[in-house]
């Protein structure tokens, strides 16, 4: 297949994973703009495992995801006490902290970045993406999925109805971080070079845009948002940097006109 199209397809898949990582956390009523931090953890851990320790790529990505999940749990607990603005600042700062750690350590290559990773097969990225989508899809149909919706709708009323709010919220962060970790691991082994500035605040905050644009209540919404985010700049290639301006304007327009995103209907539980 044409190199250009494979590259675009891989970018799309990684964007889907990033979008889903935000989606999962948002589903529980919490907004995380720090998923680039989890992505960085996944990417660096996977990259280090495969280059320094010679672990196979899929296993490295999985391990990176586990490391990211751990961070997700660690972030998720204090996040319980923060809401809205403070959670936004907290998650941004978490990402900045991960960046600063990566900048200092030798094993991550410092500011020069981590290189030398072998290239991951596209099939693996596809497998990861499909697995994540399938798992999320099934999860939403379960009674836990109902709990998550209740927590997002009104966490106090949910607690009064017996839902383990704390567990749900921390689990959501953990799951979101794990998915971002997979994205990071795939990203590291596709571009074969990562550095701290790949996970800047801009990147991290922009990660929420596809979900908001596509539809925050549906997996399909996150996927659509990621598709638009990947394809639109390509369609508007002639406009160079201005294509992102158009994308930004589009996001603001949609948010104002259709706050729940393009695909906004909620899916009914069976």
């Amino acid at each position: 297949m044409n190199v250009y199209y494979t590259g675009l397809f891989v970018t799309f898949l990684i964007n889907v994973l990033c979008a889903l990582s935000v989606y999962v956390i948002l589903k529980s009523g919490q907004i995380s703009v720090g998923n680039a931090g989890f992505m960085a953890v996944g990417g660096y851990v996977a990259g280090i495992l495969s280059t320094v320790y010679g672990l196979g790529i899929p296993a490295s990505v999985a391990a990176g995801s586990a490391a990211a999940a751990l961070c997700g749990a660690v972030v998720g607990i204090p996040a319980l006490r923060l809401k809205g603005t403070y959670l936004v600042i907290g998650t941004i700062s978490f990402t900045a902290m991960i960046r600063s750690i990566a900048q200092v350590l030798d094993i991550t290559g410092g500011a020069m970045g981590l290189k030398g990773m072998k290239r991951i097969g596209i099939l693996w990225i596809v497998i990861f993406a499909v697995l994540v989508i399938a798992l999320l899809f099934l999860f939403e149909k379960t009674r836990y999925g109902l709990d998550v919706e209740a927590v997002a709708a009104d966490s106090e009323a949910a607690a009064a109805a017996g839902v383990r709010v704390i567990l749900i919220k921390v689990l959501s962060f953990t799951l979101g971080a794990a998915i971002a970790g997979i994205a990071g691991g795939c990203y590291a082994h596709w571009t074969q070079y990562i550095e701290p500035s790949d996970f800047s605040t801009s990147v991290s905050t922009m990660m929420v845009l596809p979900v908001i644009l596509g539809g925050r209540n549906r997996i399909a919404g996150a996927v659509l948002g990621a598709a638009v985010f990947t394809i639109l700049p390509e369609l508007l290639r002639f406009a160079s940097v201005w294509r992102m301006v158009i994308y930004g304007v589009l996001v603001i327009a949609i948010v104002i006109v259709k706050p729940d995103g393009l695909i906004s209907g909620r899916k009914r539980h069976a």
Partner: peptide
């Protein structure tokens, strides 16, 4: 304090979750 976006049936299912 109704759960936004959920059906009536789903409200009851949530409350029953504690028994499962």
């Amino acid at each position: 304090r109704i759960f936004r976006g959920m059906t009536v049936r789903e409200h009851l299912l949530v409350a029953q979750n504690r028994k499962l």
